[in-house]
Write a protein that binds this DNA or RNA. Structure first.
Lengths: 174, 174
DNA sequence: ACAATAACTGACCGATCGGACAGATCTGTC
DNA sequence: GACAGATCTGTCCGATCGGTCAGTTATTGT
Protein backbone atom coordinates (compact mmCIF):
# COMPACT_ATOMS: atom_id res chain seq x y z
CA UNK A 1 0.00 0.00 0.00
CA UNK A 2 2.84 2.35 0.87
CA UNK A 3 4.38 1.36 -2.47
CA UNK A 4 1.13 2.13 -4.30
CA UNK A 5 1.00 5.56 -2.71
CA UNK A 6 4.62 6.26 -3.63
CA UNK A 7 4.04 5.11 -7.20
CA UNK A 8 1.01 7.34 -7.66
CA UNK A 9 2.68 10.26 -5.94
CA UNK A 10 5.80 9.97 -8.12
CA UNK A 11 3.74 9.95 -11.28
CA UNK A 12 1.45 12.80 -10.23
CA UNK A 13 4.22 14.97 -8.78
CA UNK A 14 6.19 14.55 -12.01
CA UNK A 15 3.14 15.39 -14.12
CA UNK A 16 1.59 18.25 -12.18
CA UNK A 17 4.23 19.32 -9.67
CA UNK A 18 4.21 18.98 -5.90
CA UNK A 19 1.97 21.96 -5.27
CA UNK A 20 -0.15 21.00 -8.24
CA UNK A 21 -0.94 17.61 -6.75
CA UNK A 22 -3.35 17.48 -3.81
CA UNK A 23 -3.64 14.65 -1.32
CA UNK A 24 -7.08 14.02 -2.78
CA UNK A 25 -5.54 13.61 -6.24
CA UNK A 26 -3.16 10.96 -4.92
CA UNK A 27 -5.91 9.22 -2.96
CA UNK A 28 -8.16 9.08 -6.02
CA UNK A 29 -5.32 7.68 -8.12
CA UNK A 30 -4.49 5.03 -5.54
CA UNK A 31 -8.16 4.28 -4.90
CA UNK A 32 -8.36 5.01 -1.19
CA UNK A 33 -9.32 7.86 1.08
CA UNK A 34 -7.22 10.92 1.74
CA UNK A 35 -7.15 10.02 5.42
CA UNK A 36 -5.60 6.68 4.55
CA UNK A 37 -2.59 8.42 3.00
CA UNK A 38 -2.04 10.27 6.25
CA UNK A 39 -2.18 7.01 8.15
CA UNK A 40 0.80 5.66 6.20
CA UNK A 41 2.68 8.98 5.97
CA UNK A 42 2.78 11.65 8.64
CA UNK A 43 2.12 14.41 6.08
CA UNK A 44 2.43 15.34 2.41
CA UNK A 45 6.10 16.28 2.77
CA UNK A 46 6.90 12.84 4.14
CA UNK A 47 5.71 11.27 0.89
CA UNK A 48 8.09 13.49 -1.06
CA UNK A 49 10.97 12.77 1.32
CA UNK A 50 10.59 9.03 1.03
CA UNK A 51 10.35 9.35 -2.74
CA UNK A 52 13.75 11.02 -2.83
CA UNK A 53 15.63 8.99 -0.25
CA UNK A 54 17.26 6.59 -2.77
CA UNK A 55 18.01 9.45 -5.18
CA UNK A 56 19.80 11.35 -2.45
CA UNK A 57 21.92 8.34 -1.61
CA UNK A 58 22.93 7.84 -5.25
CA UNK A 59 23.80 11.53 -5.55
CA UNK A 60 26.09 11.20 -2.56
CA UNK A 61 27.72 8.12 -4.08
CA UNK A 62 28.22 9.92 -7.39
CA UNK A 63 29.93 12.83 -5.65
CA UNK A 64 32.22 10.46 -3.78
CA UNK A 65 33.18 8.75 -7.03
CA UNK A 66 33.82 12.18 -8.58
CA UNK A 67 35.96 13.55 -5.74
CA UNK A 68 39.31 11.90 -6.56
CA UNK A 69 38.96 12.48 -10.31
CA UNK A 70 40.08 15.51 -12.30
CA UNK A 71 40.22 16.90 -15.82
CA UNK A 72 38.48 15.18 -18.68
CA UNK A 73 38.07 12.02 -16.64
CA UNK A 74 36.01 13.95 -14.08
CA UNK A 75 33.82 15.44 -16.76
CA UNK A 76 33.17 12.09 -18.41
CA UNK A 77 32.26 10.48 -15.10
CA UNK A 78 30.05 13.40 -14.10
CA UNK A 79 28.15 13.49 -17.37
CA UNK A 80 27.83 9.71 -17.43
CA UNK A 81 26.51 9.77 -13.88
CA UNK A 82 24.02 12.52 -14.55
CA UNK A 83 22.76 10.89 -17.73
CA UNK A 84 22.52 7.52 -15.99
CA UNK A 85 20.57 8.91 -13.06
CA UNK A 86 18.36 10.95 -15.36
CA UNK A 87 17.29 7.81 -17.14
CA UNK A 88 16.85 5.63 -14.07
CA UNK A 89 15.07 8.09 -11.76
CA UNK A 90 13.00 9.73 -14.43
CA UNK A 91 10.07 10.76 -12.24
CA UNK A 92 12.26 12.08 -9.47
CA UNK A 93 14.48 14.01 -11.89
CA UNK A 94 11.40 15.57 -13.40
CA UNK A 95 10.21 16.63 -9.98
CA UNK A 96 13.67 17.93 -9.13
CA UNK A 97 14.03 19.94 -12.30
CA UNK A 98 10.46 21.10 -12.59
CA UNK A 99 9.69 21.89 -8.97
CA UNK A 100 12.81 23.53 -7.65
CA UNK A 101 11.04 25.88 -5.32
CA UNK A 102 9.40 22.93 -3.61
CA UNK A 103 12.83 21.46 -2.96
CA UNK A 104 14.09 24.75 -1.60
CA UNK A 105 11.18 24.80 0.82
CA UNK A 106 12.12 21.34 2.12
CA UNK A 107 15.70 21.53 3.38
CA UNK A 108 15.17 18.27 5.22
CA UNK A 109 15.18 16.44 1.91
CA UNK A 110 18.41 14.84 0.72
CA UNK A 111 20.28 18.06 0.24
CA UNK A 112 19.71 18.32 -3.47
CA UNK A 113 20.84 21.89 -3.85
CA UNK A 114 24.17 21.37 -2.13
CA UNK A 115 24.73 18.28 -4.18
CA UNK A 116 23.85 19.97 -7.44
CA UNK A 117 26.00 22.95 -6.59
CA UNK A 118 28.93 20.65 -5.86
CA UNK A 119 28.32 18.96 -9.18
CA UNK A 120 28.22 22.28 -10.99
CA UNK A 121 31.36 23.42 -9.21
CA UNK A 122 33.10 20.21 -10.16
CA UNK A 123 32.24 20.93 -13.76
CA UNK A 124 32.24 24.65 -14.47
CA UNK A 125 34.71 25.64 -11.76
CA UNK A 126 37.53 24.25 -13.84
CA UNK A 127 36.55 25.53 -17.24
CA UNK A 128 39.58 27.80 -17.76
CA UNK A 129 42.06 24.96 -17.11
CA UNK A 130 40.68 22.58 -19.68
CA UNK A 131 41.21 22.11 -23.36
CA UNK A 132 38.53 23.71 -25.55
CA UNK A 133 36.55 20.56 -26.28
CA UNK A 134 36.25 19.61 -22.63
CA UNK A 135 35.61 23.21 -21.65
CA UNK A 136 32.81 23.34 -24.16
CA UNK A 137 31.12 20.29 -22.70
CA UNK A 138 31.51 21.73 -19.22
CA UNK A 139 30.13 25.03 -20.38
CA UNK A 140 26.98 23.77 -22.03
CA UNK A 141 26.28 21.31 -19.24
CA UNK A 142 26.93 24.09 -16.76
CA UNK A 143 24.59 26.47 -18.51
CA UNK A 144 21.83 23.90 -18.56
CA UNK A 145 22.38 22.87 -14.98
CA UNK A 146 22.58 26.40 -13.69
CA UNK A 147 19.57 27.48 -15.70
CA UNK A 148 17.55 24.44 -14.83
CA UNK A 149 18.48 24.31 -11.17
CA UNK A 150 18.63 28.02 -10.43
CA UNK A 151 22.17 27.75 -9.10
CA UNK A 152 23.71 31.15 -9.57
CA UNK A 153 26.89 31.55 -11.57
CA UNK A 154 29.50 33.15 -9.27
CA UNK A 155 30.37 36.25 -11.29
CA UNK A 156 30.12 37.89 -14.67
CA UNK A 157 33.56 36.73 -15.76
CA UNK A 158 32.63 33.12 -15.13
CA UNK A 159 29.38 33.56 -17.00
CA UNK A 160 31.04 34.99 -20.09
CA UNK A 161 33.64 32.22 -19.98
CA UNK A 162 30.85 29.68 -19.93
CA UNK A 163 29.12 31.28 -22.88
CA UNK A 164 32.23 31.77 -24.98
CA UNK A 165 33.35 28.23 -24.14
CA UNK A 166 30.11 26.80 -25.46
CA UNK A 167 30.23 28.98 -28.55
CA UNK A 168 33.89 28.16 -29.24
CA UNK A 169 33.25 24.44 -29.09
CA UNK A 170 30.29 24.84 -31.40
CA UNK A 171 32.41 26.76 -33.86
CA UNK A 172 30.31 29.87 -33.46
CA UNK A 173 31.59 33.40 -33.23
CA UNK A 174 30.32 35.06 -30.10
CA UNK B 1 2.31 50.15 -12.53
CA UNK B 2 1.63 47.29 -14.94
CA UNK B 3 5.38 47.12 -15.44
CA UNK B 4 5.97 46.99 -11.67
CA UNK B 5 3.50 44.15 -11.35
CA UNK B 6 5.13 42.22 -14.21
CA UNK B 7 8.58 42.77 -12.70
CA UNK B 8 7.55 41.50 -9.29
CA UNK B 9 5.59 38.62 -10.76
CA UNK B 10 8.52 37.52 -12.93
CA UNK B 11 10.88 37.52 -9.97
CA UNK B 12 8.48 35.75 -7.60
CA UNK B 13 7.28 33.18 -10.16
CA UNK B 14 10.90 32.34 -10.98
CA UNK B 15 11.79 32.03 -7.30
CA UNK B 16 8.75 30.23 -5.91
CA UNK B 17 6.86 28.95 -8.93
CA UNK B 18 3.48 30.04 -10.25
CA UNK B 19 1.44 28.04 -7.77
CA UNK B 20 3.87 28.97 -5.03
CA UNK B 21 3.24 32.67 -5.55
CA UNK B 22 -0.08 34.11 -4.39
CA UNK B 23 -1.64 37.33 -5.59
CA UNK B 24 -1.07 38.66 -2.09
CA UNK B 25 2.66 37.88 -2.40
CA UNK B 26 2.86 39.91 -5.61
CA UNK B 27 0.79 42.74 -4.16
CA UNK B 28 3.03 42.94 -1.07
CA UNK B 29 6.15 42.97 -3.27
CA UNK B 30 4.75 45.72 -5.50
CA UNK B 31 3.38 47.63 -2.53
CA UNK B 32 -0.27 47.75 -3.44
CA UNK B 33 -3.43 45.83 -2.70
CA UNK B 34 -4.35 42.49 -4.17
CA UNK B 35 -7.45 44.04 -5.66
CA UNK B 36 -5.29 46.51 -7.53
CA UNK B 37 -3.56 43.69 -9.38
CA UNK B 38 -6.93 42.44 -10.56
CA UNK B 39 -7.77 45.89 -11.84
CA UNK B 40 -4.77 45.88 -14.18
CA UNK B 41 -4.99 42.20 -15.08
CA UNK B 42 -8.17 40.20 -15.49
CA UNK B 43 -6.77 37.32 -13.39
CA UNK B 44 -3.58 35.63 -12.23
CA UNK B 45 -3.19 33.72 -15.50
CA UNK B 46 -3.26 36.97 -17.46
CA UNK B 47 -0.16 38.14 -15.61
CA UNK B 48 1.65 34.97 -16.64
CA UNK B 49 0.45 35.27 -20.24
CA UNK B 50 1.69 38.82 -20.61
CA UNK B 51 4.99 37.82 -19.05
CA UNK B 52 5.51 35.25 -21.77
CA UNK B 53 4.23 37.10 -24.80
CA UNK B 54 7.67 38.34 -25.95
CA UNK B 55 9.26 34.95 -25.24
CA UNK B 56 6.66 33.20 -27.35
CA UNK B 57 7.32 35.58 -30.24
CA UNK B 58 11.06 34.97 -30.08
CA UNK B 59 10.49 31.21 -29.97
CA UNK B 60 8.44 31.47 -33.15
CA UNK B 61 11.14 33.56 -34.79
CA UNK B 62 13.81 31.04 -33.80
CA UNK B 63 11.81 28.19 -35.30
CA UNK B 64 11.34 30.13 -38.52
CA UNK B 65 15.09 30.79 -38.74
CA UNK B 66 15.68 27.08 -38.10
CA UNK B 67 13.23 25.77 -40.68
CA UNK B 68 15.31 26.17 -43.85
CA UNK B 69 18.51 24.93 -42.19
CA UNK B 70 19.73 21.36 -41.92
CA UNK B 71 22.60 19.26 -40.60
CA UNK B 72 25.30 20.77 -38.46
CA UNK B 73 24.24 24.27 -39.40
CA UNK B 74 20.79 23.66 -37.94
CA UNK B 75 22.26 22.30 -34.73
CA UNK B 76 24.58 25.27 -34.30
CA UNK B 77 21.78 27.74 -34.90
CA UNK B 78 19.43 25.89 -32.55
CA UNK B 79 21.93 25.66 -29.71
CA UNK B 80 22.98 29.26 -30.18
CA UNK B 81 19.36 30.34 -30.14
CA UNK B 82 18.54 28.35 -27.03
CA UNK B 83 21.62 29.59 -25.17
CA UNK B 84 20.93 33.14 -26.24
CA UNK B 85 17.32 33.04 -25.11
CA UNK B 86 18.26 31.32 -21.86
CA UNK B 87 20.54 34.19 -20.99
CA UNK B 88 18.22 36.99 -22.08
CA UNK B 89 14.94 35.72 -20.67
CA UNK B 90 16.36 34.26 -17.51
CA UNK B 91 13.28 34.64 -15.33
CA UNK B 92 10.93 33.34 -17.96
CA UNK B 93 13.15 30.37 -18.76
CA UNK B 94 13.30 29.53 -15.09
CA UNK B 95 9.53 29.61 -14.89
CA UNK B 96 9.29 27.52 -18.04
CA UNK B 97 11.73 24.89 -16.91
CA UNK B 98 10.74 24.84 -13.26
CA UNK B 99 7.00 25.06 -13.59
CA UNK B 100 6.14 22.93 -16.57
CA UNK B 101 2.86 21.70 -15.17
CA UNK B 102 1.68 25.27 -14.91
CA UNK B 103 2.41 25.74 -18.59
CA UNK B 104 0.59 22.54 -19.47
CA UNK B 105 -2.44 23.85 -17.60
CA UNK B 106 -2.41 27.06 -19.66
CA UNK B 107 -2.68 26.05 -23.32
CA UNK B 108 -3.64 29.63 -24.16
CA UNK B 109 -0.09 30.73 -23.46
CA UNK B 110 2.29 31.06 -26.40
CA UNK B 111 2.32 27.41 -27.24
CA UNK B 112 5.52 26.61 -25.41
CA UNK B 113 5.13 22.86 -25.50
CA UNK B 114 4.53 22.67 -29.24
CA UNK B 115 7.43 25.00 -29.81
CA UNK B 116 9.75 23.03 -27.56
CA UNK B 117 8.67 19.78 -29.12
CA UNK B 118 9.37 21.18 -32.57
CA UNK B 119 12.78 22.24 -31.34
CA UNK B 120 13.47 18.81 -29.92
CA UNK B 121 12.29 17.16 -33.11
CA UNK B 122 14.49 19.45 -35.14
CA UNK B 123 17.44 18.28 -33.07
CA UNK B 124 16.97 14.67 -32.01
CA UNK B 125 14.81 13.61 -34.96
CA UNK B 126 17.84 13.70 -37.20
CA UNK B 127 20.33 12.00 -34.95
CA UNK B 128 20.88 8.90 -37.10
CA UNK B 129 21.74 10.97 -40.21
CA UNK B 130 24.50 13.00 -38.63
CA UNK B 131 28.15 12.46 -38.08
CA UNK B 132 29.06 11.30 -34.55
CA UNK B 133 30.14 14.67 -33.14
CA UNK B 134 26.99 16.42 -34.30
CA UNK B 135 24.87 13.48 -33.19
CA UNK B 136 26.45 13.70 -29.76
CA UNK B 137 25.58 17.33 -29.35
CA UNK B 138 22.07 16.60 -30.51
CA UNK B 139 21.82 13.70 -28.14
CA UNK B 140 22.91 15.48 -24.97
CA UNK B 141 20.89 18.55 -25.79
CA UNK B 142 17.95 16.30 -26.55
CA UNK B 143 18.30 14.42 -23.28
CA UNK B 144 18.39 17.64 -21.30
CA UNK B 145 15.51 19.17 -23.22
CA UNK B 146 13.38 16.06 -23.00
CA UNK B 147 14.16 15.56 -19.35
CA UNK B 148 13.71 19.18 -18.47
CA UNK B 149 10.61 19.78 -20.52
CA UNK B 150 8.89 16.45 -20.05
CA UNK B 151 8.62 15.87 -23.79
CA UNK B 152 8.48 12.15 -24.28
CA UNK B 153 10.95 10.41 -26.53
CA UNK B 154 8.97 8.64 -29.27
CA UNK B 155 10.18 5.08 -28.80
CA UNK B 156 12.77 2.90 -27.13
CA UNK B 157 14.95 2.75 -30.22
CA UNK B 158 15.18 6.50 -30.34
CA UNK B 159 16.01 6.63 -26.67
CA UNK B 160 18.87 4.18 -26.94
CA UNK B 161 20.19 6.04 -29.97
CA UNK B 162 20.20 9.25 -27.96
CA UNK B 163 22.00 7.65 -25.06
CA UNK B 164 24.60 5.82 -27.14
CA UNK B 165 25.14 8.96 -29.21
CA UNK B 166 25.94 10.95 -26.12
CA UNK B 167 28.18 8.23 -24.73
CA UNK B 168 30.01 7.76 -28.05
CA UNK B 169 30.79 11.44 -28.32
CA UNK B 170 32.04 11.48 -24.77
CA UNK B 171 34.28 8.54 -25.49
CA UNK B 172 32.45 6.35 -23.00
CA UNK B 173 31.59 2.72 -23.49
CA UNK B 174 27.88 2.23 -22.98
C1' DA C 1 -14.17 -17.43 19.78
C1' DC C 2 -12.25 -13.33 21.03
C1' DA C 3 -9.29 -9.72 22.07
C1' DA C 4 -5.67 -6.81 20.11
C1' DT C 5 -3.80 -4.44 16.65
C1' DA C 6 -3.41 -2.66 12.05
C1' DA C 7 -5.74 -0.49 8.27
C1' DC C 8 -8.98 2.47 6.81
C1' DT C 9 -12.74 6.10 6.50
C1' DG C 10 -16.30 10.11 6.81
C1' DA C 11 -16.87 14.23 8.81
C1' DC C 12 -14.96 18.12 10.26
C1' DC C 13 -11.61 22.25 11.06
C1' DG C 14 -8.74 26.46 10.32
C1' DA C 15 -6.17 28.61 6.84
C1' DT C 16 -5.51 30.28 2.42
C1' DC C 17 -6.47 30.71 -2.20
C1' DG C 18 -8.36 33.41 -6.51
C1' DG C 19 -11.69 36.41 -7.45
C1' DA C 20 -15.99 39.83 -7.14
C1' DC C 21 -17.75 44.19 -6.00
C1' DA C 22 -19.14 48.56 -4.12
C1' DG C 23 -17.20 52.48 -2.88
C1' DA C 24 -13.19 55.77 -1.92
C1' DT C 25 -9.49 58.58 -3.96
C1' DC C 26 -6.84 60.67 -7.46
C1' DT C 27 -6.28 63.32 -11.86
C1' DG C 28 -7.32 66.12 -15.59
C1' DT C 29 -10.94 69.09 -18.31
C1' DC C 30 -14.23 72.49 -18.82
C1' DG D 1 -16.13 74.23 -8.32
C1' DA D 2 -18.26 70.36 -10.96
C1' DC D 3 -17.90 66.53 -13.30
C1' DA D 4 -15.92 62.09 -15.49
C1' DG D 5 -12.97 58.54 -15.92
C1' DA D 6 -9.06 56.09 -14.27
C1' DT D 7 -7.01 54.03 -10.34
C1' DC D 8 -7.04 51.89 -6.05
C1' DT D 9 -8.77 49.44 -1.79
C1' DG D 10 -11.46 46.94 2.18
C1' DT D 11 -14.41 43.48 2.57
C1' DC D 12 -16.63 39.62 1.49
C1' DC D 13 -17.36 34.95 -0.87
C1' DG D 14 -17.08 29.97 -2.40
C1' DA D 15 -13.72 26.55 -3.15
C1' DT D 16 -9.93 23.94 -1.92
C1' DC D 17 -6.07 22.94 0.65
C1' DG D 18 -3.44 20.01 4.41
C1' DG D 19 -4.41 17.90 8.45
C1' DT D 20 -7.14 15.93 12.80
C1' DC D 21 -9.97 12.70 15.05
C1' DA D 22 -13.46 9.55 16.57
C1' DG D 23 -15.04 5.59 15.07
C1' DT D 24 -15.52 1.41 11.78
C1' DT D 25 -13.69 -2.61 9.42
C1' DA D 26 -10.25 -6.13 8.43
C1' DT D 27 -6.48 -9.04 10.01
C1' DT D 28 -3.82 -11.53 13.13
C1' DG D 29 -2.34 -14.18 17.29
C1' DT D 30 -3.78 -17.16 20.86
Amino acid sequence: MRADILDSAARLFAAHGFRGTSLQDIASDVGCSKASLLYHFTNKDAILSELFAPVGQEFETLLERLAPLSGEEAVRAAVAGVVDMSLRFRSQVKILLLDVDTMLDHPDLPCVDDVTESLVDALVGRVPEQEPRVAGWMALLGIFLTTARGVSIPDETMRSELTSGAFRTLGLSS
